[in-house]
């Protein structure tokens, strides 16, 4: 009797409530199946389809003049979008974490609008406002300025769609860190710029990089909003995601998959960069904690 109780109490020590092996392995199995079916298989298919007709076809498809132009335009849009949203995100995060003003909570909620609104709707809104017959667009047309169906329109919607990423990363961090260090800087006589450069920026560095990586990934891959405002003019307003669709509709499956493999490559690279940043953040934290207890 006593020995049974001892044995059962020993097995209880190993197992916590809700830690049943059957449920654990069932969940692990489902997770593996879903990941393989929905994420890994398609990624493998993209690369295998792109290379299905051999490396030389892959290279030919890649060096096609319209493909090259699409790559160029995509990188150009990203190169404009990322710095814009970097500045905007830092300024916005600074505003809502360092100042108290009426409507602050509302502003924090409004930042998320681009995440909540379907990109196609965002594209349509821009078309309505800035199109040739739109409210602002018709006025601009009088001065011979055309935003829609050219690269400025693509940049505008991409900026809209990606603007929450940097701010979203920074706001919780800056809220948690508080403004005491900056106040200490002011008391010690530092100028605003010096405080930002030597105190604020080092404190938010990794979160900022993380936000930039996410912004870049989305800027490169955005389809919905861009397809509405770009008009997919081959060699002019065709970004890489639009190019994939166009090639596919031309029954050039291998060509479509070649361009798609480029986008997938960028995505994999982004994930690696994101993983690295997270690893760096975690390592800094662990090191600091280890030193604290030492």
């Amino acid at each position: 009797m006593a020995s049974t109780r001892a044995r059962s109490s020993r097995s209880l020590q190993h197992r916590r409530v809700g830690d049943s092996p059957a449920i654990k392995w069932l969940l692990i199995g489902i997770a593996i199946a879903v990941t393989a079916g929905l994420l890994i298989m398609p990624l493998v298919v993209i690369f295998s389809e792109a290379l299905s007709s051999g490396w030389s076809t892959f290279a030919d498809n890649l060096l096609d003049q319209y493909t090259l132009h699409a790559i160029g335009l995509t990188l150009f849009v990203a190169a404009l979008t990322v710095p814009l949203n970097l500045v905007f995100g830092v300024a916005l995060a600074w505003l809502v974490t360092r100042f108290r003003f009426p409507g602050r909570k509302l502003l924090i909620t409004l930042i998320d609008i681009p995440f909540a609104v379907s990109p196609v709707v965002a594209g349509l809104l821009y078309l309505l406002l800035y199109g040739r017959n739109g409210w602002i667009g018709s006025w601009l047309a009088d001065y011979d300025i055309q935003l829609m169906f050219s690269w400025p329109g693509i940049v505008m919607v991409t900026v809209f769609v990606t603007c929450p990423f940097v701010a979203r990363e920074l706001i919780p961090l800056m809220q948690q860190q508080g403004s005491e260090e900056e106040e200490a800087g002011v008391v010690l006589g530092a100028s605003g710029w010096r405080i930002f450069r030597t105190i604020t920026l080092p404190n938010i560095k990794w979160a900022l990089i993380y936000g930039v990586v996410l912004t870049n990934a989305r800027a490169v891959g955005e389809f919905g909003a861009v397809s509405v405002v770009a008009g997919s003019i081959r060699g002019q307003t065709n970004t890489l995601p639009l190019h994939v669709e166009l090639l596919y509709q031309d029954y050039n499956v291998v060509g479509a998959f070649t361009s798609a493999s480029l986008l997938a490559g960028i995505a994999v690279f982004t994930l690696a960069a994101k993983g690295f940043v997270e690893w760096r953040q975690a390592r800094t934290l662990i090191r600091l904690q280890a030193q604290e207890t030492a």
């Binding site: 106040e183 800087g185 002011v186 030597t198």
Partner: peptide, 15 residues
């Protein structure tokens, strides 16, 4: 910035 005072914060606020 121009008052030239020393201020010690409750939670130190070291950089």
């Amino acid at each position: 910035r121009d008052r030239n005072i020393g201020f010690v914060f409750q939670h130190y606020a070291l950089f």
